[in-house]
Amino acid sequence: MKISGNDIRPGNVIEYDGTLWVAVKTNKVKPGKGPAYNQVELKNLIDGRKLNNRFGSDEKVERARIETKDFQFLYKDGDVLVFMDSESYEQINLAEEFVGERAAFLQDGMTVTLEMHEEKPIGIALPDQVVLAITETEPTIKGQTAASSYKPAMLENGVRVMVPPFITAGERIVVDTNEIAYIKRAE
Rank of each mutant, 00 (worst) to 15 (best):
G34K: 02
N53C: 12
G48T: 01
E67W: 07
N52V: 14
A64V: 10
I46T: 11
L42C: 01
P31D: 00
S88T: 14
R63D: 02
V29S: 02
K25F: 15
I46E: 09
D77E: 14
Q39E: 14
V24D: 08
G78D: 02
R63F: 06
E67D: 13
Q72G: 07
R65D: 11
P31L: 01
E87W: 10
K28F: 15
D58R: 15
D58Y: 12
N53E: 15
I66N: 04
V61M: 04
F73I: 00
Y89H: 10
E62W: 13
S57N: 15
F71G: 01
G48D: 03
L51S: 09
A64C: 09
V29T: 05
K43H: 03
K69C: 06
G32D: 09
N38D: 00
Y89K: 09
I46K: 10
A36Y: 08
N53K: 15
F83S: 05
G78W: 01
D79R: 14
N27P: 03
K43W: 03
K33A: 15
Y37A: 01
L81M: 02
Y37R: 03
K60Y: 07
K30S: 14
K69F: 06
T26H: 01
S86E: 08
D79N: 13
E62V: 13
N52I: 12
K60I: 11
P35F: 06
D85T: 04
G78Q: 03
D58G: 08
L74Q: 05
L42Y: 01
K30N: 13
K43D: 01
K28N: 15
E67N: 10
E87Q: 12
L45M: 09
E41P: 06
R65M: 14
L51H: 08
